[in-house]
């Protein structure tokens, strides 16, 4: 029962983040800046949930994001799973108790997802220097936002689970 609750809650949190980031991007659109903080969808499932639950949340979130974008359905599924697989491989290196590790995991994952998306979707644009300049600007702004919000975001999800009397911090991670 607790597993269902936490899955639903984290999915809801991811949906909320997606919505808020979209509103921010709408406000930034006149300046031709786009922020992408998709790594934040993966962090909590990676640090605080077991692998099965994490994969389920990643799958649903990826399909949720993919549905509205002009990319082949499944691009985000593959990208998120790729990033999540790497994080799982690094589970012994990245410790959730250490804020620097959480930050490093977030920044690395965000970079990987944005770069992967560029290779998947840009096609012939990859040959243009303007495309990579715009990509670097978007990446810089996105990483800055990740840097600022990552600690708050992970704690917010932990607190939300605590309100439902689920103390994920105290539970032992299976792996």
């Amino acid at each position: 029962m607790n597993d269902d609750k936490r899955t639903l809650l984290i999915l809801f949190a991811n949906g909320l983040l997606y919505f808020v980031v979209n509103q921010v991007n709408e406000s930034l659109a006149p300046f031709s800046i786009h922020i992408s903080v998709e790594a934040l969808f993966l962090l909590f499932p990676f640090f605080y949930l077991n692998t099965g639950q994490g994969l389920l949340i990643v799958l649903i979130t990826a399909m949720f994001v993919d549905a509205t974008l002009p990319v082949p359905f499944g691009v985000h599924v593959i990208l998120y799973f790729g990033t999540f697989a790497f994080l799982l491989k690094m589970r012994r290196v990245f410790r959730r108790e250490n804020p620097r590790h959480v930050l490093l995991a977030a920044l690395w994952s965000n970079f990987f997802i944005m770069l992967g998306l560029s290779f998947f979707t840009a096609g012939s644009l990859q040959n243009l220097s303007e495309f990579w300049f715009r990509f670097l600007c978007d990446l810089a702004f996105s990483q800055l936002v990740v840097l600022i919000v990552v600690g708050w975001w992970v704690n917010l999800q932990r607190k939300a689970l605590l309100m439902w009397e689920i103390d994920v911090g105290a539970e032992l991670q299976q792996y």
């Binding site: 799958l59 399909m63 549905a67 359905f73 599924v77 593959i78 799973f81 697989a85």
Partner: peptide
């Protein structure tokens, strides 16, 4: 394990019928 998961899921996703993907997207 992570690599096996990734490969397994990627292959499963590619093998999924288009009808399912289209239905899920809509």
């Amino acid at each position: 394990r992570p690599i096996v998961y990734l490969l397994g899921i990627s292959v499963a996703w590619l093998l999924l019928p288009v009808v399912f993907k289209s239905f899920a997207r809509t």
